[in-house]
Design a protein around this nucleic acid. Structure first.
Lengths: 340, 340
DNA sequence: ACTGGCACTCGACTTTGAGGAGTGCCAAAA
DNA sequence: TTTTGGCACTCCTCAAAGTCGAGTGCCAGT
């Protein structure tokens, strides 16, 4: 309803000012800092409407206005202009990510970079196994009754699991298993493997079947079903910027949430292709994060997505800047992965 | 000098009371809560001496006394009685650690356990490669010019590195290299490998030498020299207990320090055998942690030490309890490792 | 539809004062 | 020589009261 252009402009101004000053913004200050071309009184009327509509609120009578979650939402959806990255930022990204040798290395550098650029808490998910393909599987005999199963995925992830064999097994048999397994599974998407693995067991010689079954069960249970997600976190110290004001005075719940991998995965996993998702305050399903906002997106080589990354900060955050940075970093990381 | 038994007793009482109440403790409260058998006036005199000696101080005139770092030090060194773990705690430890399948699993469970029991920030170092022996080395061909070098250590650690070969290499040659490498290095302490690796290169056939040199250099550089340390962290949310009082009101520097792996390694690595190390406040070399204390110890199967673990909290912490817990957990983890 | 004016609200900050916990010191007792 | 009771003093904490000023809402006038 009654939200004409000027009112939206006022809302934008409030958000921008509040984000940068961290203080409730009043009508007088607004007209001074922005060229609105109207008097404070007019702005006050607009503010009254905006408050009525639930986009801003007053911390107390006779204080300036502060955006509500709904206000930020509107701002993000309709009002924020894309903020291009500064050349310095671009350079920082390149400098930071060039020279990564390892998947681990890439992930760690990325998460630190994100934390540093956005000055917020950054989270990066390792490429999800569920979205990876098998590049190679290796069986390493540790003893006569123990194997190390090493899986190398096309995304660069390497996972290993110990397999306890039912009885002593000869090296030749192990090599044979390895050959068969690779013939069957190499290049397959991990999510497609269950029937193939089952077939593998069925096709085994009877006397070797129990052994193969052991390997198969480890493979399925730990790598496919409980598809081990890993992630990296950085920048928790950034939570303390902005003093006691953000996060309604208590970092506690936020820090607690950040310790739960499951929660973090919920936040930055579950990404639709090429979207940047912004969850503002109450939109977060996790109660501990009701005072926080999360900006997340997917990344991967080309247009595919193999994992998610994002940042978490106070609702009072620089959304345009953060969104731009998250996107840019995700793209760079994707390119990096594509090079392999 | 003039620190007779009663003065020490007074100091102990002050530390204990302050740790539990978080409030400066006065002479009157002291004689009431502890059976000191003397009057408040006497205690006051003792306190004056203790203050003179630098073991306690007054936040302001006409407030009670608070222990100084030196006071805690004296307390830890001479006054604290060993506090046996409660049966509940013992049970918690066992319940928590039983059922760990993996080294990763062990480390993660341990760090969470420590954080939970001590209600502090916990850090656990993975078994150090430098203190491990090679159990097996595997070379997995990824393409004709790329290998994945997988090292399995006796401590359970598994590390993998990508090796770029100088030119296409046949599978047979790879297998041959693998055989030779294992023959030479299996069972050797990682720190003893450099000369052996050098010999390996020297003994290679001339035409295979450059290939072997590639593998050797990756092995040496990334696994031995820059001996990759890993660690796990948990319980950062515990920093927020005790309100703004601990850490002189700002978590910032502490959180920053906790993000630096190097710093954490400094804290919990560097352990002499079977000692529990306690660093109190200013004794920490890292400026950001001048308001914190660290209790750390080494762990490993039997009496050997393969890594460190510990907790970090405010100087005002329950030293006897924390020390007991850290030790107990370290022993349990050691036993667990010994079982493999 | 916008503006200037004005009364009003209410938090932030300062001042004042009472209350009280705790100290330091001293002279007397043990 | 050590301990103790007494006492004056310090200074923090808390509450009450008052001032200041930013910011509002409303209204009448353009």
């Amino acid at each position: 309803m009654s939200l004409d252009d000027r009112k939206l402009e006022v809302l934008r101004a409030i958000v921008e000012d509040y984000v940068s000053t961290q203080e409730p913004v009043g009508s007088k200050a607004l007209v001074e800092r922005h060229q609105l071309g109207v008097s404070p009184a007019t702005v006050r009327n607009d503010m009254a409407v905006l408050e009525e509509e639930g986009y801003i609120r007053q911390p107390h009578t006779s204080a300036g206005r502060v955006p509500t979650d709904a206000g930020y939402r509107l701002f993000v959806d309709r009002l924020s202009r894309v903020k291009p990255l500064s050349p310095a930022e671009r350079r920082a990204i390149e400098r930071f990510l060039v020279g990564a040798v390892d998947l681990d290395d890439v992930v760690h550098r990325t998460v630190r970079l994100l934390a540093q650029l956005t000055r917020q808490v950054a989270v990066v998910q390792y490429p999800s196994l569920a979205r990876s393909s098998v590049r190679h599987l290796e069986l390493v005999p540790i003893s006569t009754t123990r194997l190390m199963l090493v899986m190398i995925a096309d995304t660069g992830r390497v996972e290993q699991r110990l397999v306890e064999l039912p009885g002593p097994t000869r090296t030749d048999d192990v090599l044979d298993m390895r050959r068969k397994i690779n013939a069957k599974l190499s290049g397959e998407k991990l999510s497609d493997t269950p029937p193939l693995v089952a077939a593998l067991v069925d096709e085994s010689d009877p006397e070797k079947r129990t052994t193969m079954a052991c390997v198969a069960s480890v493979l399925l249970e730990t790598l496919v079903e409980r598809s081990e997600e890993r992630l990296a976190l950085a920048g928790t110290a950034n939570l303390t910027r902005g003093g006691v004001l953000d996060f309604q005075g208590s970092l506690r719940p936020v820090l607690e949430a950040l310790e739960e991998e499951v929660i973090l995965l919920k936040l930055i996993g579950e990404v639709e292709p090429s979207t940047t998702r912004v969850r503002i305050g109450d939109e977060n399903e996790i109660d501990n994060l009701r005072a926080a906002s999360v900006v997340s997106t997917g990344y991967g080589p080309g247009t595919t997505i193999v994992g998610g990354l994002g940042v978490l900060g106070p609702t009072r955050m620089d959304y345009p800047g953060t969104i731009a940075t998250v996107r840019a970093v995700a793209r760079y990381v994707g390119d990096l992965l594509a090079q392999n």
